[in-house]
């Protein structure tokens, strides 16, 4: 701690902070009313972009969508897992939570080796994304930092692609739309049962309880 004046809060504000205090006081009152509470729930619809999907897609539909998008991007990810093997991983992927909405989605990631020309990579990635119907916008602020390329794109229905590519690694993250179809919950329950089985992992030397207690 520095030797600031006792009893005072060092640089906790100035005149500017007085304005902010007034501002947040008013803003706080507004928020108290709930009118600017963050987070909204959009309609469960998908655009006409890409594969046909119902309004509340099943896990199979989401898998197909993920394969369509990541399958197309697969060609610009050097050294990535063979496409068929990667698709098998998508088939085995358990759904993930969709914020606090209680719905689920798939969020697969495709990892590969490094790239050499980040500017060219961005152009190519943007071309493929546009063909997929998930175009980048100026708000995505795609660009290069050092030798790393950053590309993003998304749709109002919640689908999202985020790509980081550098000399050593390329990572493509994709998130499907959210759905509350029971097929997703079923898939998650199966994965959950498997995950909880790890609690049974214990060396076989452990004694087993008998009906009447523990006997060696």
């Amino acid at each position: 701690m520095s030797d600031g004046d006792a009893g005072l809060t060092p640089y906790a504000g100035g005149m500017s902070r007085a304005i902010r205090t007034a501002a947040v006081l008013l803003l706080g009152a507004a928020a108290l009313t709930g009118c600017i509470a963050p987070g909204t729930t959009g309609p469960e619809t998908t655009t006409e972009t890409g594969a046909e999907m119902s309004e509340n897609p099943t896990i199979e539909e989401l898998r197909a969508d993920a394969k369509r998008v990541l399958g197309a991007l697969h060609e610009i990810v050097p050294g990535a897992t063979e496409k068929e093997e990667f698709f098998a991983r998508i088939d085995a992927l358990a759904p993930a939570s969709c914020g606090s909405s209680g719905t689920l989605r798939l969020a697969p990631a495709l990892e590969g080796g490094g790239i050499e020309d980040p500017e060219a990579f961005i152009l190519e990635a943007e071309r493929i994304l546009a063909e997929l119907g998930i175009p980048s916008t100026p708000e995505d602020r795609n660009g290069v930092l050092d030798e790393d390329a950053y590309v993003g794109a998304g749709l109002p229905d919640g689908r999202m692609v985020a790509i980081q590519a550098g000399p050593e690694r390329t990572m493509v993250q994709y998130e499907t739309v959210c759905s509350n179809d029971e097929s997703l919950r079923d898939a998650l329950d199966q994965a959950r049962d498997a995950a909880l089985e790890t609690g049974d992992d214990a060396p076989q030397s452990a004694p087993k309880p008998s009906r009447w207690g523990i006997h060696s």
Binding site: G39, T40, G42, P43, S101, R105, L145, M160, E175
Partner: peptide, 15 residues
């Protein structure tokens, strides 16, 4: 690079 942040949350509703 990257989109400008505009909320307090770590993550928001996808839509």
């Amino acid at each position: 690079p990257g989109k400008v942040g505009n909320v307090h949350d770590q993550a928001t509703s996808p839509e």
